[in-house]
């Protein structure tokens, strides 16, 4: 999260709710290291990344629920046959992404 703190800080200062999604585990190869994170604000602003763009849109969808409820959520992404063309990682790795609302 350290790379995007100033953005999160300023969005919070503007009174927005913010969700941070952080890569907390990777298996096999992964596009971004653990600690890579993506912040999503109530008004739809985004900053940072958790993959090379492969899963960000799905994280964004899930973030809407976390923005609303404030309940943290863990998402896992990998490559599976039926997912290979939807949401997944073309590099064949798996990542776990933790979503939490910044309080």
């Amino acid at each position: 999260m350290k790379e995007i703190l100033s953005e999160i800080d300023s969005w919070k200062a503007d009174g927005e709710k913010v969700v941070v999604a952080t890569v907390v585990a990777t298996r096999r190869s992964a596009p971004r290291p653990i600690g890579a994170s993506l912040a999503i604000s109530e008004s739809g602003k985004m900053c940072g990344s958790v993959s090379g763009g492969c899963v960000e849109s799905d994280v964004f969808e899930n973030a809407q629920e976390v923005l609303e409820t404030g309940a943290p959520k863990m998402l896992s992404y990998g490559i599976e046959d039926d997912l290979a063309w939807s949401v997944g990682l073309p590099c064949g790795g798996e990542i776990d992404v933790f979503l939490e609302r910044v309080e």
Partner: peptide
């Protein structure tokens, strides 16, 4: 002070 603000200050 919020945690985020404290973290942002760590960088400086």
């Amino acid at each position: 002070m919020s945690l985020i603000h404290r973290l942002a200050k760590l960088r400086e």
